[in-house]
Design a protein around this nucleic acid. Structure first.
Lengths: 129, 129
DNA sequence: AGACTGTTATATAATATATATAACAAGCAG
DNA sequence: CTGCTTGTTATATATATTATATAACAGTCT
């Protein structure tokens, strides 16, 4: 796997794991229906505890990104979660903070949008293969 | 003050405080040089501990949003922090995650940019007065 | 002198994070 | 059937974070 954990940062390991898996799905490194390493295997690979991996997997299952089959383990869902009203609210709140912070520091609308655009394009590029 | 704390969410109180103050500065509810309530006053207003407010104030001081004078208390900095390379990295990482998540859920580039734009416009609107 | 600042120090409680170990039930391959 | 792999569940432990409670201090202002 492509997982890289930063043990120095304040962000919990399970949260880093969760984010990197979602980013992996977005850019196509993980394809729909693809099987993920078992909790024990991934835990050993990155040198952490099995329960930490399990926590990340379960959050992703509850959010709809993964499907967990007792016999086969975890795999990427064939149907991705929807843009619910609840998700939209969370997204807007997060963006409001990031934009406010950037705005205070003098970043104009165009600069911010340009960053978002390049990240979107980056994802699309990696999706080619 | 305009602070509203949600005691149900998992986001720490001091983090909510920090974010709302930055958002307040961005939209002009707090102006440069304006004095903030004392840690004791604000803590009493929103029914939390003085140290929780103090923590938020100090983080904001270290990031350059506030200036703290022992005799007068905290006030909004006259010079806002810069867009450092470090900040840019954090911003991009955060956006990469938000965009990946939204992308998986089927949101296209235009939809995401449109949300960002409307939040920027919202801030500009409130800035009028 | 008295009232107000932020600051510092201690102590405590509750929660979150991460680890370690062990055991269980289900499925599958030999 | 036996042995291996799944995720799952249960306990226990250690550490760090978050939040509160009290108290005291030094500086500033009226």
């Amino acid at each position: 796997m492509f997982i890289k954990i930063d043990f120095e940062t304040e962000m919990p390991i399970y949260e880093q794991l969760k984010r990197q898996i979602i980013e992996g799905i977005a850019k196509g490194a993980l394809k729909k229906g693809e099987q993920l390493p078992s909790v024990r295997q991934l835990a050993e690979d990155i040198g952490i505890n099995l329960h930490t991996v399990n926590k990340a997997y379960n959050i992703l299952k509850n959010e709809g990104f993964l499907t967990i089959d007792r016999r086969k383990g975890a795999m990427v869902s064939n149907l991705m979660p929807e843009i619910t009203e609840q998700y939209l609210e969370l997204l807007k709140e997060e963006l409001k903070y990031l934009i406010s912070n950037s705005y205070c520091r003098g970043m104009r609308k165009e600069g911010f949008l340009s960053i978002c655009e390049s990240i979107y394009d980056e994802i699309d590029d990696e999706k080619k293969f």
